[in-house]
């Protein structure tokens, strides 16, 4: 069993060496179509991160009535914190709010001296949980907080958030649609490239069947070869993508690359597409005759 396994791996690399030309062409074709896929995935990855960052900044401002005293503030703090949707709250007193305001005004801070009393209310900055940072959940949370005694107003940029989430939804669907086409065409191109290598060795396959090789004996070297080609093509396309990213960064400095984890997953997926493509192409040949 082990002896056969070693022989099959040797077989795979023997054929790769023997058919360098076909292997190279097939790896180049695969690399280019994977580059197309990788560009798409990277764009999606950046888009999602952009959306994520925008949402992470989402905060809810809860302004309190001036009549609420210290104990009322503490009660409200407890009540808001106990809500499911809430991650945390920070109390901003009217004094520190005015200080912040003064800092923001910079040179015009003198204007504030004209005020007789501090017009700013006490407030809570409420951070919702990440998964609740959508317009529907936030509207619900805002409604609940408004119900509490001593709350004057709740603000969370509703208009912006509504518009933003509808744009994100639209982009998301377009992305999904384009992604489907890109993935399908990558799989199509790769399986065709693999099929070419299989067709090139049809005669060998026929001979192996005649001398009594099992289907597994015939397919394993091809599957190993497909996996190798897929992995190699993934690495080539990632290197190309890195180059593209560096170029584009001159215009979009914030453009990020895949994390190590995603790079690994991408390579793994390509290895699998290569080996499954080989297997699928071979199955048709092995069915011939019987």
């Amino acid at each position: 069993m082990i002896r056969k396994g070693i022989f099959l791996v040797q077989e795979a690399f023997r054929t790769i060496r023997r058919h360098k030309g076909v292997t190279s062409i097939s790896v180049i074709i695969m690399s280019l179509s994977l580059l197309m896929l990788a560009v798409f995935l990277l764009a999606t990855d950046n888009l999602l991160r952009l959306v994520d960052n925008a949402q992470r900044d989402t905060k809810m401002y809860v302004y309190l009535e001036d009549t609420v005293g210290q104990s009322g503030i503490e009660t409200l703090h407890r009540e808001i914190l106990s809500m499911d949707e809430v991650e945390g709250t920070i109390f901003v007193s009217k004094v520190s709010a005015l200080e912040d305001f003064r800092l923001q005004l910079e040179d015009d801070a003198d204007l504030l001296d004209a005020l007789e009393a501090n017009p700013l209310p006490n407030a809570f900055w409420v951070t919702p949980r990440d998964e609740r940072k959508n317009s529907k959940d936030l509207a619900y949370l805002a409604g609940n907080i408004m119900q509490l005694e001593g709350v004057e107003e709740v603000r969370y940029g509703k208009e912006f958030l509504d518009k933003f989430s509808s744009i994100v939804t639209a982009v998301y669907y377009v992305d999904l649609f384009v992604g489907l086409i890109v993935i399908l065409s990558a799989i199509f191109i790769i399986s065709n490239a693999v099929r070419l290598t299989v067709i090139g060795r049809r005669k060998s396959i026929e001979i192996l069947r005649l001398v009594g090789a099992t289907n597994r004996f015939i397919t394993m070297p091809f599957i190993i070869e497909g996996a190798f080609q897929g992995g190699l093509a993934a690495l080539v396309s990632l290197i190309l993508l890195m180059g593209v990213t560096i170029l584009v960064r001159q215009f979009v400095p914030d453009l990020g690359f895949f994390s190590a984890e995603k790079t690994f997953l991408f390579t793994l997926a390509c290895v699998m597409i290569g080996s499954i493509g080989s297997f699928a192409a071979l199955r048709r040949f092995l069915r011939v005759g019987r």
Binding site: K203, S204, E206, R209, L210, V211, G212, A213, T214, N215
Partner: peptide, 17 residues
């Protein structure tokens, strides 16, 4: 495959790898 191992076959066009 097991049948094929019991039956050797030779062809006009040799069918060598």
């Amino acid at each position: 495959p097991h049948l094929r191992r019991k039956v050797g076959v030779v062809f006009q066009d040799f069918k060598l790898l």
